[in-house]
Amino acid sequence: KKVTINGVEIKFNNPEEAVKFALELAKRLNLRIEFHGDQIKIE
């Protein structure tokens, strides 16, 4: 399963991993996060 985070394609074994990764990243950098299907936007 491929997920695009800020235009960067990252391959994950499952979608939950991708979501956890994105949330952790957003929390660490104190950023806002948006989900659009397989696209995750962090700003």
Rank of each mutant, 00 (worst) to 15 (best):
A26H: 01
I33E: 00
I10M: 06
L29Y: 09
D38S: 07
E43S: 14
K20G: 03
T4G: 02
I33L: 06
F12H: 01
I10N: 02
I33R: 00
A22F: 14
L23Y: 08
G7E: 02
L31E: 01
N30W: 11
P15E: 10
K2L: 13
E9M: 11
I42Y: 00
E43V: 15
N30G: 13
N14T: 14
A26M: 08
V3L: 07
I5N: 01
I10D: 01
L23A: 04
Q39I: 14
T4L: 13
K11E: 10
N30T: 04
K27D: 06
R28E: 10
V8W: 13
V3Y: 04
K41A: 06
R32F: 09
K27R: 10
F21P: 00
K2H: 08
Q39K: 05
V3K: 02
E34Y: 09
G7N: 05
F21S: 05
K20Y: 10
R32E: 04
L25P: 00
L31A: 12
A26E: 02
F35L: 06
N6F: 15
A22S: 01
N6M: 12
L31V: 12
K41Q: 06
E9N: 05
L25W: 06
I5S: 02
Q39D: 11
N6A: 10
V3W: 04
V3M: 05
I40D: 01
P15Q: 09
K20M: 08
L31I: 11
E9K: 06
L23E: 11
V3Q: 02
E16G: 11
K41F: 14
I10G: 00
H36M: 13
E9G: 05
Q39M: 13
E17Y: 11
L31K: 00
F12S: 02
G37T: 05
L31W: 05
G7T: 06
I10P: 00
P15L: 15
V3A: 03
E9S: 11
E24Q: 08
P15T: 12
F12I: 03
N14D: 10
N13P: 10
G7C: 14
K11Y: 15
L29V: 04
K1Y: 15
L25I: 10
L23I: 11
E17F: 08
F12Y: 03
E17L: 12
F12C: 15
I33T: 01
T4A: 04
K1P: 13
V19T: 05
N6K: 06
L23G: 02
E34N: 06
F12W: 05
A26D: 00
A22H: 01
N13A: 13
R28S: 11
K1D: 07
K27N: 07
P15A: 13
V19G: 02
Q39L: 13
N30C: 15
R28W: 12
K41P: 00
V8R: 09
F12E: 00
N13R: 13
E16Q: 10
P15R: 13
R32I: 12
E43K: 11
N13T: 11
L25E: 01
L23W: 08
N14R: 07
K1A: 12
G7A: 05
L23C: 15
T4P: 04
R32P: 03
K20H: 05
I40C: 08
R28H: 09
K41L: 13
I10Q: 01
E43D: 08
I5P: 03
E43W: 14
K11V: 13
E43R: 11
K2Q: 07
I5L: 07
F35E: 02
E34H: 08
V8G: 04
F21R: 05
F35K: 02
G7W: 11
K20D: 06
L29R: 01
Q39T: 15
E24A: 10
K11C: 15
N14F: 12
R32G: 04
A26Y: 07
E9D: 07
K11W: 15
T4S: 07
V19K: 07
D38R: 02
N14Y: 10
H36Q: 10
V19W: 14
Q39A: 10
E16H: 08
E43Q: 12
V3R: 04
R28G: 08
R32S: 09
E9P: 06
N14V: 09
A18Y: 10
K1R: 12
L29F: 10
V19C: 15
L29E: 05
K1V: 15
K41T: 11
L31G: 08
R32Y: 10
A18R: 02
F21M: 06
I42S: 01
K2Y: 11
F35P: 00
F35G: 02
I10C: 15
K1S: 12
R28I: 13
A22G: 02
L25N: 00
L31D: 00
D38T: 07
H36Y: 13
F21V: 06
L31P: 00
E34Q: 08
N14I: 07
F35R: 02
V8M: 10
K11S: 11
G7Y: 09
A22V: 13
L23M: 10
I42W: 00
K11Q: 11
I5G: 04
E16N: 08
P15K: 09
E9L: 13
A22K: 00
G37W: 12
K11T: 12
H36E: 11
A18F: 14
K41G: 02
R32C: 15
E16S: 11
V19P: 01
A18P: 02
R32N: 07
I40T: 01
K11I: 13
E34F: 11
E24W: 13
I5C: 15
I33N: 00
L29G: 06
V8E: 03
E17T: 05
I40A: 01
I33D: 00
L23Q: 06
I42Q: 00
N30E: 05
A18V: 12
A26G: 03
E9Q: 07
D38G: 07
N14K: 07
I33V: 12
V19H: 06
N30Q: 09
I33H: 00
E9V: 14
N14E: 01
D38Y: 06
I42N: 04
H36L: 12
E34V: 12
G37M: 08
V19S: 03
V3H: 03
I40M: 04
K20Q: 08
K41V: 14
G7M: 10
E24V: 05
F12T: 02
A22C: 12
E17G: 06
